[in-house]
């Protein structure tokens, strides 16, 4: 449940960097996603066509504050997004470092506090730091979105142990792995670990065939969730024969 909303698909999909609007539309459709991320920018060409495309997708809109480096910029962007998109949902990004696009946790918490108090339903893009997560919940966030790896890097769950700890620590809090996922197997891994959803963009948009990759991610996320619910067997250090010894012939 994300702010009271139950989603049929646990894949959230970004809308940037696709080779064409037609490919984006098809990718959204076949992925099964119900939540797409969008931004606010100075309008270039094709602005009205994009508005029609997102409206036609039937997806819930999650506007972002991508590119903001201060709490003030992010707060202003969030207000602009709320008016244009007509939603209280906001993917809150406050970037702290240009190369890693790592969130600035201090400005993030500050912006989250202001926005939550103002009625926004904040999806904070954060690190896997537990204390930052606690502060974001204190600020009023009801979802946390830790990164898997730096945005657009496709490295997958670079610190899976920390994400596992985070999942255990924040039992009951909706957690979304956002950023860094490059392959469907990595999305499935996050879902098997018990994350509630994954959010990705580049891995689909920059695939050789984005539509086929969107389908692959949709299937991987479903499979990972099903596996989590089914309960994975515990890993062992040693082998354990699966075929019974009982009844075995003496042939030596």
């Amino acid at each position: 449940m994300f702010y009271g909303v139950e989603l049929g698909s646990r894949l959230m999909l970004g809308t940037a960097q696709y080779p064409s609007p037609a490919v984006l539309a098809k990718a959204m459709e076949v992925s099964g996603t119900e939540v797409i991320t969008v931004s606010l920018r100075r309008e270039g060409s094709g602005g009205s066509a994009f508005r029609d495309l997102i409206a036609g997708s039937g997806c819930r809109i999650l506007p972002n504050t991508a590119g903001c480096h201060t709490a003030k910029e992010a707060i202003t962007t969030a207000h602009m997004a709320r008016e244009v998109f007509g939603t209280n949902w906001i993917k809150l990004e406050v970037i702290g470092h240009a190369d890693t696009l790592q969130p600035d946790p201090f400005a993030l918490v500050e912006a989250a506090r202001v926005l939550c108090a103002d009625g926004f339903e904040v999806f904070p893009y954060t690190t896997d730091d537990l204390i930052v997560g606690e502060k974001l919940l204190d600020a009023g966030c009801q979802v946390l979105m830790p990164w898997g790896a730096p945005i657009g890097s496709g490295q997958g769950l670079r610190n899976s142990a920390a994400l596992k700890t985070m999942r255990a620590h924040f039992a009951g809090v909706p957690l979304v792995v956002d950023a860094g996922i490059g392959a469907p197997s990595q999305a499935a891994q996050a879902m098997e670990m018990g994350f509630d959803a994954v959010l990705l963009n580049t891995a689909v948009a920059k695939a050789v065939d984005p539509v086929a990759m969107a389908r692959a991610f949709g299937m991987a996320v479903s499979a990972g969730r099903l596996a989590h619910d089914a309960g994975l067997m515990p890993a062992r250090d040693m082998a354990a024969a699966s075929t019974p010894i009982f009844g075995m012939a003496e042939l030596a």
Partner: peptide, 10 residues
Amino acid sequence: VEVLSPMQGG
């Protein structure tokens, strides 16, 4: 003055 529109985003 900034005048912004919905655009693609991740």
